[in-house]
Simulated assay, not measured.
Amino acid sequence: MAAAGAISVWISTSTPTKITAFISKPRICYPLKLSRNGIYPLSTFERNGQYEQNLTIKAAASSSVGSAEYTEEPATKVKFQRSLSLPGCSTSLSLLGTGYREKIFAIIGVKVYAAGLYVNDSVFSRLDAWRGRSAADIQQDPSLFNKIFEADLEKSLLIVLVRDVDGKTFWDALDEAISPRIKSPTADDKSALSTFRGVFQGKPLKKETSIFLTWIDPNKMLVSLSFDGMPSSVDATIESPNVASALFDVFLGGDPVSPTLKASVAKGLEATLK
């Protein structure tokens, strides 16, 4: 919780909303609509008989309000926390880059989700060979991304949906990218994929649903869904080095499903490895 400060609040309503003002603590009456991904501004509200467009109040501002705690993915406007503490991880993870996934329907590109890659900061001490390299060089060097994946340190991919998607549809699209990357699936691989599929089957994934895919190490991956904020538990544990590796390759390999994410991660690495 940050120190008390001034917070600009916007009211989301089609009708004037009454605000009763006190000397020290203004009270806001409903409706007031705040979103996890931002604040919705709208029309006016009434304060002491006067219509105004916003109200500045004194309050204890949480980290969810401070823009310094977030990075916005520019194409989708999804805000990613710069640091995450996730179930199953021994330490907090830092945001390295963001991007988005786009699907083509009838020649029209439709954005499906935004994605952010988080890593354990200790991984940077293992990347000295790439210090001083440009983002363009980094992006074209598969050995660097292999090094990150093979490091026995946690990393996590956060996917935030920007439209409603049926769980089966989401899994089918993901499986379409994963399965070709596993040339000769073993019984363990098939079991892991079945477990992975079960997380999404029968679930309507609404806009702003968060999907956390967390590699604990190169052989083990945790899957968590959250429909409102951070996850409180792990929904599935995937124990298959082939599946874990294939999923990492889907997003950060030679033919990533989100080129914007890989490009952003490369820029993040360039800045960190100066």
Rank of each mutant, 00 (worst) to 15 (best):
I148E: 04
Q139T: 10
I159M: 09
V112T: 14
S134P: 05
V112S: 11
R126N: 07
S143N: 13
D152K: 10
A135I: 02
A106C: 05
G132M: 11
A151N: 04
D141Q: 10
P142I: 06
I107E: 10
E150D: 15
I104W: 06
A129N: 14
V123C: 08
V123N: 01
G109I: 02
A106R: 10
Q140S: 15
S122L: 13
Q139F: 06
R101H: 11
V160K: 05
D137Y: 09
D152H: 12
V110F: 14
A106E: 11
N120M: 07
L144Q: 00
D152A: 13
L158M: 06
S143K: 09
I107D: 14
E102I: 06
A114Y: 08
F124N: 02
G109C: 03
K111F: 05
V123W: 02
S143H: 10
D121W: 04
L117E: 04
Y118A: 05
R133Q: 14
D141S: 12
A106F: 14
L158K: 08
D141T: 10
I148R: 02
L157N: 02
L117K: 01
F124S: 09
D128M: 06
V110K: 12
V110W: 08
I159Q: 04
A129C: 07
I104Q: 11
I104R: 10
K111E: 13
R126D: 04
F105Q: 13
N120K: 05
S122Y: 05
L144P: 00
S122R: 14
S125R: 06
V123L: 09
